[in-house]
Nucleic acid binder design. Structure first.
Length: 505
RNA sequence: UCCUCCUUAGCUCAGUUGGUUAGAGCGUCGGACUGUUAAUCCGCAGGUCCUAGGUUCAAGUCCUAGAGGAGGAGCCA
């Protein structure tokens, strides 16, 4: 049995393949089957003169998503996806498919999410999951090459680790339990045993967030390194992200093309140094007090707003024109084509109008930003808008960071944390930093955050027995996939997303 | 939890100041067409206008409440 991706090695030969009918077009005496098998897509042609009447009849009756075994000859044809097509001589139907709900037209998101188990079969979702797979492989390759050991942290925990986020509560036999929001504290223990480790697992947050950046269940990669300060940590993060992006660009060309990802944003990523801003500098950029390449962030937002408004006007003018056009007596095919264009324009306009509404809010939120606060989604967008590559922000006010974050000796009010913000509004993809080693500081922090000391006694042991400087970070897998794929929404980046309001399928 | 918007055919949507029997495209099904790229052309079928209540001679359209959805804020990866 030959997979579609391997057709190129069988030119001129008769082979067997199996897969699903993605789409079908027909002419008199000829059927064009678009077959998919998970490895790729190929057009398979059934010509009445080359097959038995029974086989041709089977071909005519094939419906969308019927599973089939085909045998036929592989022919080179540069016009086709993949460059090869099959001239079929026999068809065996494996499984019927009646009234498949997802058509080749545009669908709304609610419908697609309700049918997520089938939506996964479509080309775009296939491309995203292939890239997700490549990113996962790339992550393992990077850490394994760097001498990290993969070790995993528990999913059931007895405490809310950082105390800030809402967790999913559960039962562990007769005790209260929570689903882990991070494996970080366990990661630290394992780094003290293994040197350099990383965890790779699911994470749960019960925040009722309804945005295109949030999931309730997502996958996080959390490296933790003994004898690492935050500067070494930032160097590692930068190399790590560059490695992933470069690897995907090299190995997922077809998938990125299907997604129509604008690759110019990645062009120089391997060569450019990621900007490293202190929190203080970042705040000045947000408030428009510091310029980058002679521009203030607020100016850029105002320019963006003008640009969006101009685009809306252009699209509205185009829409009017098309509507006038379609009112005239045209052939049906031309009419359909224009109607599709009209639908597309309407969607684009409503998306742009949301941006138009958001920008003034972001602008005022940027101008009114109070030093000492954490960044919101809009502040992150403002900062990243100034650069083409991910931006690192470090040295944060310790009050807004977790209890275990290391205080800076030179600036005691600051903690040595680092956040990495992805460009184009994809937000924080990495959060991390150097961990506090001073036992007394940790004790006072635990008290300050009103955390149950009893739950952290084991963690404090790490500082009693051979404590060393150490650092680590967490990478959000889905946000990384969203950024690299350029998806509109994070929910497309995981096979079965769990977010506020979505538990099925 | 708060703010804004949305809910009409299997899907995507139109439906004017409230007015007769609620429309289109796509999809399904039937037919036509030898090479199509979301093929095209002809035809049939397809409706709890989200739910409940109210205003009115008359409600898809107006009012109230509820349910569901989308995007933001907060929170974060």
């Amino acid at each position: 049995m030959i997979q579609i991706k391997d057709f190129k090695g069988f030119e001129g030969q008769t082979i067997e393949t199996q897969g699903w009918v993605m789409n079908k077009r027909s002419g008199k005496g000829i059927e064009f089957i678009i077959l998919r098998d998970g490895s790729g897509f190929a057009q398979c042609i059934v010509s009445e003169e080359n097959v038995s009447p029974a086989t041709f009849d089977r071909a005519k009756r094939l419906s969308q998503e019927t599973s089939v075994k085909l045998s036929g000859k592989i022919i080179k044809d540069d016009k086709q996806i993949g460059g090869y097509e099959m001239h079929v001589d026999d068809i065996e139907i494996i499984g019927e498919s009646v009234d498949y709900p997802i058509s080749n037209k545009e669908h709304g998101i609610e419908f697609l999410m309700d049918n997520r188990h089938l939506w996964l079969r479509s080309k775009r979702q296939w491309a995203i999951l292939k890239i997700r797979n490549r990113i996962i492989l790339s992550i393992h390759n990077f850490f394994q090459k760097e001498g990290f050991i993969q070790t995993d942290s528990p999913i059931f925990t007895g405490n809310a680790a950082e105390g800030s986020t809402t967790l999913f509560s559960s039962k562990y036999y007769d005790q209260d339990a929570y689903l882990a929001q991070t494996g970080q504290l366990y990661g630290e223990a394992m780094a003290m045993a293994m040197g350099k480790i990383y965890t790779f697992g699911p994470t749960f947050r019960a925040e009722k967030s309804k945005t295109r950046r949030h999931l309730s269940e997502f996958w996080m990669i959390e490296p933790e390194m003994a004898f690492f300060d935050n500067d070494m940590n930032m160097d590692l993060i930068e190399n790590f992200i560059k490695h992933i992006v470069t690897d995907v660009l090299e190995n997922c060309k077809e998938e990125l093309e299907i997604l129509e990802r604008n690759l110019s944003v990645f062009k120089n990523i391997a060569k450019l140094r990621f900007p490293r801003l202190t929190y203080d500098e970042a705040v000045k950029i947000i408030k428009g007090e510091k310029t980058i390449n002679g521009k203030k962030s607020t100016d850029i937002l105002i320019e963006d707003l003008a640009e969006v408004k101009a685009q809306i006007n252009n699209k509205k003018a185009e829409l009017q024109e098309k509507e006038k056009e379609i009112a005239g007596g045209l052939k049906k095919g031309v009419k359909n084509f224009i109607q599709n264009k009209i639908d597309q324009l309407k969607n684009e306009i409503s998306d742009l109008e949301i941006v138009e509404k958001n920008i003034p809010q972001w602008l005022s939120s940027a101008e009114n930003f109070r030093y000492g606060n954490d960044f919101g989604g809009s502040d992150e967008t403002v900062i990243t808008r100034m650069f083409d590559v991910p931006v690192m922000v470090y040295n944060w006010p310790h009050e807004i960071k977790a209890f275990y974050m290391k205080r800076d000796k030179a600036m005691p009010e600051m903690a040595k944390g680092v956040d990495v913000l992805a460009p184009e509004g994809y937000g924080e993809i990495v959060g991390g930093g150097e961990r506090e080693t001073d036992l007394n500081l940790l004790l006072s922090k635990i008290e300050e955050h009103k955390l149950p000391l009893k739950e952290f006694e084991w963690y404090l042991d790490l500082r009693k027995y051979g404590s060393v400087p150490h650092s680590g970070f967490g990478l959000g897998l889905e946000r990384t996939v969203a950024w690299i794929c350029g998806t509109q929404h994070i929910r497309e980046t995981i096979p079965f997303p769990r977010y506020y309001g979505r538990l099925h399928p």
